[in-house]
Amino acid sequence: MTIEITISHDDFDIGALHHALQIGNVQQGAVVTFTGLVREFSHGDNVVALELEHYPQMTEQLLLTIAQQAQQRWQLGRISIYHRIGYLPLGEQIVFVGVTAKHRQSAFDGAQFIMDYLKTQATFWKKEHFSHTSQWVEFKASDLQAQQKWR
């Protein structure tokens, strides 16, 4: 059982991250991944970029704690979380979450749990940039509701 956490300005290779979850992993029968992208619309306005900041030591510890909780709850094998920071133009990759498990439902649930908690618990601050303005983003009520189902 391993947990890999990366926070970086650099883009990631989905294929390489998926391969790292799978290679030599004969104990696990399921690999589930999620990739989040900078999307165009938010609150009825055209987003041109997303900027992410974080508090390094706190963020890394929170991501590790979230991953450990998921690993214990669903007996996950490997977990990979890669989160980008900095100025990310429209369409860029933001986050990758990948998990392995013996069975698919555990892998699906574990990956969703990690994403739901990332959205509300991880110390990332997001600013949406539009053509002429920008605004800090708060998590939505729907993000909190998604997290509540795991309690």
Rank of each mutant, 00 (worst) to 15 (best):
22 Q>A: 14
38 V>M: 04
76 L>Q: 08
50 L>Q: 05
144 L>W: 00
69 Q>P: 06
30 A>S: 15
107 A>W: 06
13 D>K: 04
87 Y>C: 09
43 H>E: 15
141 A>Q: 13
129 H>L: 12
127 K>Q: 14
4 E>W: 13
109 D>F: 02
132 H>K: 10
28 Q>P: 07
16 A>G: 04
99 V>E: 01
77 G>H: 08
9 H>A: 09
29 G>N: 12
111 A>S: 14
111 A>L: 06
29 G>R: 07
2 T>G: 06
138 E>V: 08
126 K>P: 00
57 Q>G: 12
125 W>R: 14
48 V>I: 15
8 S>H: 09
5 I>G: 07
18 H>I: 08
151 R>D: 11
59 T>N: 09
22 Q>D: 05
93 Q>W: 04
80 S>N: 15
140 K>P: 00
7 I>C: 08
87 Y>H: 15
7 I>K: 03
65 T>W: 09
103 H>G: 05
113 F>W: 10
41 F>D: 00
52 L>C: 08
49 A>L: 06
12 F>T: 07
88 L>E: 01
45 D>F: 03
52 L>Q: 05
33 T>C: 07
41 F>S: 00
33 T>A: 09
58 M>C: 04
138 E>L: 06
2 T>W: 00
40 E>L: 12
40 E>T: 11
134 S>I: 02
75 Q>E: 11
